[in-house]
Design a protein around this nucleic acid. Structure first.
Length: 461
RNA sequence: GGCGCGAUAGCAAAGCGGUUAUGCACUGGAUUGCAAAUCCACGUAGGCCGGUUCGACUCCGGCUCGCGCCUCCA
């Protein structure tokens, strides 16, 4: 079998993957800051690392997959304040919403989902360590800052030169910092804000320290893979490296993986631009599996353009896959190895899902052309197994075609069945006009009829 | 301005120094009462200019254009 290669942001190259511990992978992925609904950009990371995790497990790795929830943050406080709502009531709501979105998209739950608020002790002790080692200092007001220039190699992940950064940094606003590049590990609480007690007084953690604390706590000083969205490279991940490596004196992460951006009209989808589509919005029109297919149809590192047209295309493609499985009773047999090998070598090459999908389509074509029942069964079984590694084709084909994506699902199933029965009678009477009238009537409701040799089936277009 | 990434057929998206990617759409045929689905047939694409090579979409250099990061963002 081909060896697993993955693109490491740290080196800028595709590298052969070597786990720290034979057969095991410890992976941390940056999750959500929970103050709003997840958008398609989040879905990209969720689905992307879900597929990665599924494949790594498929090829035999014991994967510990940690994805944090950042539930203390300036934006959370700001939003809670706007709403006149307690910050933890707000985060609880959006954590639940996030879990709903994930269940809809069929992503496997992470091994653990640590929350910043549950790791205050670790956050504070890591901050203390950084102060002891001279990498951080407490300001007069109770803030604690990280001394960026003290850390050798700052910028190595995002390939930034510290001098370039400095020239662009805003100076003068924060007199509390020794250097404008320094970033906050701990922020003193302002009047009326929620706070935690610390050696520096009442306050809360800065943005980056919680990930260093949680990842180290859950996975150890050094772990295999750290992933996240493209906009986390700098400063978030850069700062995590600075914090963790300064605190532990050890390499923080061996392989850094970053998903590509989701764009809308050639612009990055982002909170700040306000051009984002939430997962739940999209799911009103398209089935979750179509969204997953769309996200899988390009390699996880490339940027993709979100549009209705691309989702519609994804649906057509996925329909083709399900169509090939429709009406088959599939029983477990040995897999067709040639397809399995091609699939695996595609996925071993930095998770090349577009090629993996191409293999699935070759399988679909072979399946559609096969005459022999045993051969059909083997191809269908192989198709389902491999697609399952991508989290696809896990539904019953009939259910897939009959599902109503919107809340008002249009025509009810029994009405459809009744019309089909009427049409069947008309056909038996060779009343083609009536038969076609019913077909057209259903077509107007988005129902497509397929007359097969074993009767008529229907699906929603 | 600094750093990084990309430019493939109508659209989307891959691999590859010389041999069909794949999907969607389109067209013709088979099939069907009519359709749908399916099958068969159908595409010499690779931003521009040089270089290396027997041969480059694939390697090297330059240019143009697009995008991302440099500030909160997945």
């Amino acid at each position: 079998m081909s060896e697993l290669k993955l693109f490491n942001t740290l080196t800028g190259k595709k590298e052969v993957f070597k786990p720290i511990e034979e057969g095991k992978i410890r992976m941390y992925v940056c999750g959500m800051t929970v103050y709003d609904y997840c958008h398609i950009g989040h879905a990209r990371v969720m689905v992307g690392f879900d597929v990665i995790t599924r494949f790594l497990r498929h090829i035999g790795y014991d994967v510990t997959y940690i994805r944090n929830i950042t539930d203390v943050d300036d934006k959370i406080f700001a939003r809670a304040n706007e709403n006149g709502e307690a910050f933890d009531a707000l985060t609880e709501r959006f954590i639940n919403a996030m879990h709903e979105d994930e269940r809809a998209l069929g992503t496997l739950p992470p091994t653990q989902e640590p929350r910043a608020t549950e790791h205050m002790g670790n956050i504070i002790s890591m901050t203390e360590t950084l102060i002891e080692k001279g990498f951080a200092y407490a300001a007069d007001n109770g803030d604690v800052y990280y001394r960026v220039k003290k850390f050798d190699g700052y910028g190595k992940l995002s390939k930034k030169n510290i001098d370039d950064l400095q020239s662009g940094a805003r100076v003068g606003i924060e007199e509390l910092k020794e250097d404008p590049l320094d970033f906050a590990l701990w922020k003193a609480a302002k009047e009326g804000e929620a706070y935690w007690d610390s050696p520096w007084g009442k306050g809360r953690p800065g943005w980056h320290i919680e990930c260093s604390a949680m990842s180290t706590c859950c996975l150890g000083n050094t772990f295999d893979i750290h992933g996240g969205g493209p906009d986390l490279k700098f400063p978030h991940h850069e700062n995590e490296i600075a914090q963790s490596e300064a605190a532990t004196g050890e390499t923080y992460v061996n392989y850094w993986m970053h998903a590509g951006a989701v764009r809308v009209n050639k612009e990055k989808m982002s909170k700040s631009l306000g051009n984002f589509f939430t997962i739940r919005e999209v799911l009103e029109k398209y089935s979750p599996e179509v969204v997953r297919y769309f996200l899988t149809s390009s390699q996880y590192r490339s940027q993709i353009d979100y549009s209705e047209a691309s989702l519609a295309e994804a649906q057509s493609a996925l329909d083709r896959m399900y169509q090939s499985l429709r009406g088959l009773e599939i029983s477990e047999v040995d897999l067709e190895v040639s397809y399995v090998d091609r699939f695996k070598s595609a996925m071993c090459d930095d998770f090349n899902t577009p090629v993996a999908l191409a293999v699935l389509f070759d399988l679909v074509k072979a399946l559609n052309s096969a005459k022999d029942a045993a051969e059909k069964n083997q191809l269908a079984f192989t198709l389902k197994q491999l697609a399952g590694v991508l989290g696809l084709l896990e539904s019953d084909p009939d259910a897939y075609f009959k599902q109503a994506p919107t809340q008002d699902g249009g025509l009810a199933e029994d009405e459809i069945e009744a019309l089909i029965a009427q049409r069947l009678q008309a056909r038996a009477d060779k009343n083609w006009a009536e038969s076609d009238r019913i077909r057209d009537e259903l077509a107007e409701q988005g129902i497509v009829l397929d007359d097969g040799k074993d009767g008529t089936t229907w699906r929603r277009a």
